[in-house]
Design a binder for these strands. Sequence first.
DNA 1: GTATTTTTGTGCCGTATAACATATAAAAGA
DNA 2: TCTTTTATATGTTATACGGCACAAAAATAC
Lengths: 233, 233
Amino acid sequence: MARKSLSIEDVLPHLSLLTGLLTAEQRVSFMRHASVHVYKKNQKIYEEGDMPTHLLCLVSGKVKIHKEGVGGRSQIVRVLRPVDYFGYRAAFASQNYVSAATAIEPTIVVRVPVGTVIHLILENARLGWFFMERLAKGLGTADERVVSLTQKHIRGRLAESLLFLRESYGVEEDGCTLSIYLSREDLASLSNMTTSNAIRTLSAFAAEKMVAVDGRKIKILEIGKLEKISRVG
Amino acid sequence: MARKSLSIEDVLPHLSLLTGLLTAEQRVSFMRHASVHVYKKNQKIYEEGDMPTHLLCLVSGKVKIHKEGVGGRSQIVRVLRPVDYFGYRAAFASQNYVSAATAIEPTIVVRVPVGTVIHLILENARLGWFFMERLAKGLGTADERVVSLTQKHIRGRLAESLLFLRESYGVEEDGCTLSIYLSREDLASLSNMTTSNAIRTLSAFAAEKMVAVDGRKIKILEIGKLEKISRVG
DNA sequence: GTATTTTTGTGCCGTATAACATATAAAAGA
DNA sequence: TCTTTTATATGTTATACGGCACAAAAATAC
C-alpha cells in the first residue's frame, strides 16, 4: 500500500467536478470516507485480478493502465492524467480488475470505497450520469483503439501514439516537447509493437525531421505529417 | 428506415428487465415513446458517423456492431443477441456513432428516443445503474479484446471467436452446432484476419477434427482443444 | 569511483500473415 | 432455365514485423 501523508482537505479543490454534484450531506459522507495516497514512480496502484475496493482519482502525476498479454507481453490500454477517475469500471461491472494501474511518475491518488460511491450514485442520479458519460466515452475510445491497433501499420500506430500523448498531456513551454517522458518500452507497449521497432521507427521519424529525440524527451516537429501517417495507417 | 409493423405491446415481455425498474408513471412514458421496427438480413440499423437519436433494444434476431478500418477493411467489434440494449453509448457520450450496426438475420428492434431515456435516468438512479453496469462490462470486454486481437496468432484468434460465438448464441439441439451462421467474411472480420485466412484456418481446424463444417454451419467438436489454442495464442 | 543493471540503438534472419491469383461452388437474379 | 454475381476454397508470392544477438550508453547500485 502507498504512503498516506496528505489529508483530503489538501486535494479537495481538484475534486470539485465531482463533489459539485453532491448535496452538502453527501459531500460530508464522501470526505469522511476518502483518503489520499502517494505513489512513487513505477509503483503499482492495483494489479490485474485484484478485487476493486475503491474508486480512485488521479490528483497529480501520471498513470498507465496496462494488461499482460500472451507470453507476458504488456499492452498499455490507456494513460491517465489529472483529474481522471479510474478503478471504477471493474467495481461497477462487479468484476475483478482486468488490467493493472502503475504510476509512471510520482503520483497522488484519492481513494473512496466503492460502497460509498455506489450508495451515493443510487441516491444521486447526476453523479451516476457523471460516471456514465466517462464510461461511454471510454468505450468509444476502446472501440477505435481495437481498429487502430489491429489494422494500422507500425508507423501509423507510433504516429497515432505520439499525437495521442500530445493531446493527453500537452507540450512544454517550447510548444513542441511532449510533457510526458515514456521509456521506449512503454511507447512500444502503447503502440502495440516490440521495443526494437519502437526505437527503430522513432529514429526513422527523427531522420525524416518529423520529431526530434533527446533521450526520453520527444519534440513533435511536423504534426501534419504525423497526422497523415496516422490516418493512412 | 425499417418497416414498423408490430406494436410495442407485442414485444413488451422482452423488455421487462428494464421496465421492471420503472415506476408505473415512467413505464407509461417509456411505452408512449417506444416503437418497434423490423430489419431484414444485412440491413443497416445505423451508420458510422450518424447522430444517435434512439436507445435500441434487440428483441429478436442477431446484430453485428462493426467499424470501417484503414483501406475499407471492416472490423466487427461486437455481436448482439436478444435482449441486448445498444446504440446508447454514443448518446450517453454526446458523440456520433463510431461504429455501425447491421442485422445479420431478420431482426426486431425497439427504439426509444434518447431524450426520453436520459430524462428517465436522471429521475431514476436504478435505471442509470442498469446501463452503467452494461457499459462497465462492455469496456472490460473491449480491453480484453484489444490484447487478444493484437497479440494472439491467427489460430488463437479464430478459436477464441468460435468459443465466443458459442458462448453468445449457444448451440442447436445436437449440442454442438453453433446457432449462428456467419459468412467466412464476417468470421474473418470478427477475428481480425483476411477472409482467405479465416477459410484456411477453419479448414485446418476441421482437418484436425476440432470442428466440422457444412457451409455456414459449424459444429464445435473439441472445446478443450479450442480453448487451449485460444489460451496460448 | 567502480561495478552492475537497465535502457537504447542496429543489424540480421525467420516467419506469420496479408496480398494476389485463380478455380469451383453456391446463391441470386433475369 | 440460364446468367451473373457472390461466397468458398486453395496455392503462390511478397513483406511487415517479431525474435534474437550484440554494442553502446545511461542509470543505478555498491
